[in-house]
Design a protein around this nucleic acid. Structure first.
Lengths: 219, 219
DNA sequence: TTAGTAAGTAACCAGTTAGTGTATTTGGCA
DNA sequence: TGCCAAATACACTAACTGGTTACTTACTAA
């Protein structure tokens, strides 16, 4: 392409990885219907034919991107080691992790939005995502149980509902920040705004689970 | 509209309304890029030409649909009369209203998702949505202030953050229910599941705002 | 060296899509 | 009644879009 004779390298894996990366960006940016296969090929510096060679169709490529995204967040969840923390600190760390993951992987929430727009039919068809991600729910359930045993937490909290809420209060803020900034006339993504939101989210969750929030707040 | 020989009526307003309704459904169903102008025209029982006559372009139609959706929820918010309720009951009623509105207007959250995918550029360009919707924030701020005065609520809670959280815990559950049902292997939309979620959401918010949640819970 | 195979490419195609030009119909009104 | 503008029907197009065909190029095993 350019003057300095870059010998075309034949590297199937690298090409697939470039295609996946470009596809992730494009699908996250414009959604499944809005993304263009030609643009993905161009940005991957690959020929469009390669996309069909490796991934079959646009929808299959989308499914592949989703699978990678879910496998990635699951790996990050597994890498969490909260067992050595006392229950309140573990819970706070979990809220912080969820928030940080969304912040550092902005494509993730946009892909999940797209998938839900389409009724989650791609992950439903996925073989690689067959076993459900009980990981995070079990993690939360474990922290809750430890917290009840230690006397820190209230009893009877549904780990799944709590899981959903922890995701919701971070996710919603970030996906809907554009309309939010317009409606509320305030910045959402400045460091101060982000810190404020994280603090609010931690407080929301801790007040939900702690037996005596006002005493524990000073610990 | 009824079966008996409908003579074609010359009713610009009705035609526009049918187009808007069909457009709302299609945009909500498939997003801005996924929706098809021909399908909208067909479902509106109007000629495609009329869409361009009345609304100019697909994007302008989308903007119009969004404007209508926002004006609608604002009207519903204004219709709320929570001043006569004591602060805890007013707050609970607000959480319930938000939840019910999302449930009864499923297009709303899908349209808002689409708009955020596009960086909120349509409502930013809108003249009809120029004045910000300070309504709900002021409403929440008012309830909070009354609650602080009555001794029911803690002081220092940011009405905007609380507003966002109230929306988030309902909105996220409903938009992400498809992936959620897959991931958590449980129904999200049965009457029982919905009632359980609403109860959880009310408890989350009440524990956040109440000075003494465990005492108040029995009131 | 060479035959076989996998990687990569360019041009193309058939169907779709947003958007238009224009003739025709309709209802209100003088 | 007859005029006219609003409303409507419909054929059309230019650009696009997912997917394919036919081909070249690089690597490797024998």
């Amino acid at each position: 392409m350019d003057g300095t004779a870059q010998p075309r390298v034949r590297d199937a894996e690298a090409t697939q990885a470039r295609i996946l990366q470009a596809a992730k960006e494009e699908f996250a940016r414009l959604g499944l219907a809005g993304a263009r296969v030609d643009v993905i090929a161009e940005r991957a510096e690959a020929n469009k034919r390669m996309i069909y060679h490796y991934f079959g169709s646009k929808e299959d490529l989308f499914r592949h991107v989703l699978e990678a995204a879910y496998l990635d967040i699951r790996a990050a969840e597994r890498a969490l080691e909260l067992e050595h923390l006392d229950p309140p600190r573990a819970m706070e760390a979990l809220v912080r992790f969820t928030w940080d993951y969304y912040l550092e992987n902005p494509e993730f929430i946009r892909l999940v939005n797209s998938e839900n727009l389409h009724g989650a039919r791609h992950i439903a068809e996925s073989d690689r995502l067959n076993e459900p991600s009980r990981g995070l729910t079990e993690l939360i359930g474990g922290i809750l149980a430890r917290g009840v045993a230690s006397g820190d937490f209230r009893d009877g909290i549904d780990p799944v509902q709590l899981n959903i809420t922890i995701a919701a209060i971070g996710y919603y803020y970030l996906t809907n920040r554009h309309t939010g900034e317009h409606l509320f006339e305030r910045p959402f993504m400045t460091p101060e705004a982000l810190a404020e939101r994280l603090a609010f989210n931690i407080e929301t969750i801790m007040r939900m689970v702690l037996r005596d929030p006002d005493r524990a707040a000073r610990a």
